[in-house]
């Protein structure tokens, strides 16, 4: 009976770890998973392994993950271009050399954020509905449209320094998704 409870607990905590939305909650669930593993080791009469699991699995790993979570914050950027059918390495290299490299450096040095890029050829209206991306960049001829939330402090920093980040003579227009205000840095 106890065995069934312990094994069920292991599976439930594992599910919680994988399915939960927040990473911090995942780490706590993983601590619970370790705890159930310790109980199962004790139940199968392996106290030595239970000790090792306590120190490594419950103590050090959880601590390490919590510290790592405090360090790394990811800022998700999506680049949209409807004129290209599929993105090739050449396209991405071209775009990167114009301004994405500078943007990455800016986020790393000034905001202490890791940047994560994605490239899309889907229509802009569909992407704007999804809340996954913090910043959406849309290029139309010589104009760059930046879409973001007005409550996002990092987005307003990017808009403020956009002229320094983008080296070429692009015209930059920033649009706040929630209030639909248009802002031109020039």
């Amino acid at each position: 009976m106890i065995e069934a409870f312990i094994l069920l607990g292991v599976v439930l905590f594992a599910l919680g770890t994988v399915v939960s939305n927040s990473l911090r909650r995942s780490i706590i669930y993983m601590g619970g998973f370790s705890l159930m593993m310790i109980l199962s080791y004790l139940f199968y009469r392996a106290p030595d392994v239970a000790f090792a699991e306590t120190t490594i699995g419950l103590g050090l790993t959880s601590l390490l993950y919590l510290v790592a979570l405090r360090r790394v914050k990811i800022y998700s950027i999506c680049y949209v271009d409807n004129t290209i059918e599929t993105f090739s390495d050449k396209n991405i290299h071209e775009i990167s050399s114009i301004f994405l490299n500078e943007l990455e450096l800016f986020l790393e040095k000034e905001e202490e954020m890791e940047s994560q890029f994605s490239y899309s050829t889907r229509p802009l209206a569909k992407l704007l509905d999804q809340p996954e991306h913090d910043l959406i960049i849309y290029k139309e001829k010589d104009t760059l449209y930046l879409y973001g939330n007005s409550s996002d402090a990092i987005f307003s920093d990017i808009v403020h320094f956009a002229n320094i980040i983008v080296k070429n003579d692009y015209e930059i227009k920033a649009i706040f998704k929630d209030t639909e205000d248009l802002y031109e840095p020039n």
């Binding site: 106290p47 030595d48 239970a50 000790f51 090792a52 306590t54 120190t55 490594i56 103590g59 050090l60």
Partner: peptide
């Protein structure tokens, strides 16, 4: 129960 490895991990 225990040993060098577990004790060392607790020291860490």
């Amino acid at each position: 129960p225990g040993g060098g490895f577990q004790g060392g991990a607790i020291l860490a």
